[in-house]
Amino acid sequence: MSTIFAPLTLRGITLRNRYALSPMCQYTAKDGYASDYHAVHYGRFALGGFGLLMVEATAVSPEGRITHGDLGLWDDAHIPGLARIAAFAKSYGATPGIQIAHAGPKASIQRAFEGNGPLDAADAARGEHPWQVVSPSARPVADGWLTPDALDAAGIAKVRADFVASARRALQAGFDVLELHYAHGFLLNAFLSPLTNDRTDEYGGGFDNRIRLPLAIAREVRALWPQDKPLFVRLSAVDGSGKGWTMADSVAFAKILKDVGVDVIDCSSGGFNVYEYPNGYSFQVPFAAQIRREAQIGTMAVGMIVDPRQAEAVIASGEADLVALGHAALRDPHFPLHAQQQAAHADWNIQAGWWLAHRQNKLQQLGPWVP
């Protein structure tokens, strides 16, 4: 019997299966607003059978955007466009989730398909100018990148308030799952990692100080987010260097996050241009398995999971509670339904299902196609 298609209940929310859409930036918003593109983009995964749709990194402030094309939740005016996505997902059986984020030192760059580096004269000619970025320390990501301002007490207070306000807007928009982005070298990950945090105040130095801001945000958001709705944290389980954030740190932090009411750790890695870890098929699954086992918290596995049998094995073996698909989902928005079809049958939406049943009958009459 398939385990990945078994429902999963997290607090008061039940996902129809264990397939999740991984948050993937589309860099197609204008001034943070979701458009028709976003409605269609996310709608196809609801129709495709995913249990959880996680909307891409959505900025908690204008300066927290990665690019000029990022979605935003820093203004109430952003709510209707995102509410449209959440409502459609629910109407076709999927659970809508959203990831809120601050890019920190990796903000104010080009869209991935326009260079993925610092904004330049060509971007300025399109009216896309850089803005001042912030980080725990005044250290650029790499040569040629903007030098961030080290956040002072007022800046830290603003970041905390921005996350709470954005979480409130996500709730108003109708999302049932909220994810906090603590990965990939973005602001809160930059506080966690000793590779990027060289502060000497209460937010830098040892483990307890480096987790202080991310933990405070998790606690404040959990107090706002309804008790019957789950809270996720996307974490870079390792930052890629033995001198940086380690699996032992991730397990310890996951235990603390569990105590403040986080339900699932979305286990990613990296973000610091150091890759001292394997990166083949299912390469991040062991991170999810170790955190789940040692911290006794739910986990979501992601990373080069390309085959239904792979995904099924992750859930059946107890390595994670959810499997998130990114590139594989873009290639096949109906990945869960195709997997279900291989196993037994697929719960296509009624509009498509009638046609596909007709097609299947015809194929059975014709037999295999022979070139």
Rank of each mutant, 00 (worst) to 15 (best):
A94D: 07
Y203F: 12
A138N: 09
N189F: 10
A101F: 10
R111F: 13
S193K: 05
A122E: 15
I66C: 06
D201I: 02
S193Y: 07
L187H: 08
S137A: 05
G72Y: 08
I85H: 06
I98W: 03
L180Q: 00
G97K: 04
D70C: 15
R126H: 11
R168D: 14
D70K: 10
R111T: 11
P105E: 12
Y203P: 03
R168L: 13
D76H: 13
A87R: 14
H184F: 11
W145P: 00
G72W: 09
G174W: 00
S193T: 05
N189I: 01
I98H: 01
F191P: 05
G93L: 11
K106W: 04
R160Q: 15
A124I: 13
Q110I: 08
A125T: 04
V133A: 01
P136E: 04
S135P: 06
A157M: 14
T67H: 13
V159Y: 09
A154D: 15
E179S: 04
D162G: 06
W131V: 02
G93H: 08
A142P: 03
L119W: 12
I156W: 02
V141K: 07
L73W: 08
D120C: 13
Y92K: 15
F113M: 14
I66V: 10
E128D: 15
L71Q: 08
T200A: 12
S137G: 00
A112H: 15
A150I: 01
V177H: 04
W131E: 05
G72S: 07
A165W: 05
R168V: 11
D75C: 07
A112R: 15
F88G: 12
A170C: 14
P105N: 12
N189G: 09
I156H: 06
W131P: 02
G127R: 12
L187I: 00
N116T: 08
R139D: 07
G127Y: 13
Q132N: 09
A170H: 04
I85M: 07
H78S: 02
E202C: 00
R160Y: 05
H68S: 10
A86K: 04
D123F: 14
D201H: 03
G144N: 00
G97I: 02
Y203K: 02
A157I: 13
S137Y: 03
R139M: 13
F163D: 05
T67P: 12
D123V: 12
E202M: 10
A154K: 14
F186Q: 00
I100A: 06
G97V: 01
A150P: 10
Q110R: 14
A83Y: 05
H181Q: 02
